[in-house]
Design a protein around this nucleic acid. Sequence first.
DNA 1: TAAAAATACTCCATAGGTATTTTAT
DNA 2: ATAAAATACCTATGGAGTATTTTTA
Lengths: 164, 164
Amino acid sequence: MNLRDLQYVVAVADLGQFGRAASACNVSQPTLSGQILKLEEELGVQIFERDGRVARVTERGEAIVAHARRVIRAADDLKTAAAASRDPLEGPIRLGIIATVGPYLAPYLLPAAARGLPRAPIRLVEDLTGHLLPLLADGKLDAAIMRPIRASGSRKSRSTSRSA
Amino acid sequence: MNLRDLQYVVAVADLGQFGRAASACNVSQPTLSGQILKLEEELGVQIFERDGRVARVTERGEAIVAHARRVIRAADDLKTAAAASRDPLEGPIRLGIIATVGPYLAPYLLPAAARGLPRAPIRLVEDLTGHLLPLLADGKLDAAIMRPIRASGSRKSRSTSRSA
DNA sequence: TAAAAATACTCCATAGGTATTTTAT
DNA sequence: ATAAAATACCTATGGAGTATTTTTA
């Protein structure tokens, strides 16, 4: 059993479909399907009823889903507590940046940061906007410099989750 | 983050030492050490203070440990609920057996079970007593035929967690 | 100097992906 | 006939092991 598996279960319960749950979890349908099948095998409980159109939670599955929500909630609380206890000006600042602007900004940014924030060195992560967004969501990045997605303009947007 | 990592954290908090925690979790010391280090990195919080003699939980770590206990508790509750909702006479009976007696019992056991319990075929797992015990504890086995450990006699002991 | 933890690798289990088939409406 | 889940197969991340070094009372 695994926190990720439980998230898959909750996603299917909420969205009523393996495929939608998979994209909500950013994994492929067979991956999610396989993990849920394995979990059902491991627990010895059929959690979902598949009828080719929608996935319904079985009667026994209801209890599992409810417990899964509690586990995930508790794990989220742990992450929140960790983030809260973390000194935002201590430790490296993990900054995502798209390759287009990385080489231009880095020569200015890094030396300035080294002088201004000696206890919080900047760690650059260069990648596509589409890859940076989930990292930001997962707390793997503190901030990112990216392009706006699905917008008409071309102005850079700076998204941050850290009060630095 | 991972349920197993949280168990490592709780084990260290309880036992005050990485090495002891590792053997309690049935993993090597470097494995447990590495996972805890990685978790501390991921959360951005130093959970333990190492001083070469004992591992103490840091002030910030206390909150993490408390949350970790809740997560594990919730996960255990899920497993318990799953086991409770499972029909004990449905699905394969996973029976551990030591190699010493396996070949002698199997020819009698399996055909008899096939006749008597058609909806619950017996799945034999042959291994050492020392390996069967944790499987039994994890619920991977329903029952096991083993030798008594650390006992003077030599009578076979049948341990079961399933009312079959 | 004698413990305990960290590091350095190697290995393998398994989560994940793509392509395809099966199933049920 | 069509949409969704399961299966088959391959890849790769990362969890785990052994051997070794580093650290600190």
